[in-house]
Amino acid sequence: MVKIAGIEIELYEGGAGAPLLFLHSAQGFDASHEFVGLLAKDRRVIAPSHPGFGKSGLPDWVDSIDDLAHVYLELMGHLRLDRVDIVGCSVGGWIAADLATKIPERLRKLVLVAPVGVKTGPSDKLDIPDIFALPQEAVAKLLFHDPAKGRVDFASMSDEQLQIIVRNRESLALLAWEPYMHNPKLVHRLHRATMPTLFLRGASDGIVSAPYLERYAALLPNATISTIAAAGHAPQIEQPAEFTKTVLAFLDA
């Protein structure tokens, strides 16, 4: 744990090499996931749990992605991270994109994995499906290429584990309820994110569509897109080897 902006932040650090700030999705961060070890072979992986996620605190004043980005500005100062690479997944990608508009000069390269955060489609159609209004099974289908892999046996989990899952979902709602999964200002700021940026998406992702990702990437001056086969919204979980290979190839190029 580290205290940042008055908040107790759960912080994972592993591996050695050039620093890589990993910003997790709404599922939270789990160091036992295979991709973490694979990234840590080449990089010093720094993975905070966002305020309200995992074991990190959540003060009353925090209720937006902008707030989280400000917390991470302080974390970067605390860890003396400069010219750092950031990999952000889903809502973590939104935080990363926000940071990229705030401090473009301090980020070296950016990987946005199925990021949310912008609204580019028509007002009468959600860019991101309303996961809070869908049955759990329907959400699982959108999230995973193979929903069976994503199935979690809640009955076998400890109270503490279950409460973290519940709290992560609650914090996601706090941050992304309205406007839903986006900040309307972000599209007008992303031109500042000039660093080389890779947009990554699982081919079967039902949350972040290919056209959404293309429109998102078009807002950044220096972005490319890559797709990972046989993966859904979390390619880092479903295809850890391919994911790591793609990310490191981009960062090392």
């Binding site: 409460q163 519940v166 609650e170 709602a173």
Partner: peptide, 23 residues
């Protein structure tokens, strides 16, 4: 009522929601 509308995130205390997830 469809389940997703009965248990919106944050509506109930964490302990109660965790119990609900256990069924």
């Amino acid at each position: 009522v469809a389940k997703q509308f009965m248990y919106p995130p944050g509506y109930m205390p964490l302990e109660a929601q965790a119990k609900q997830m256990r069924g």
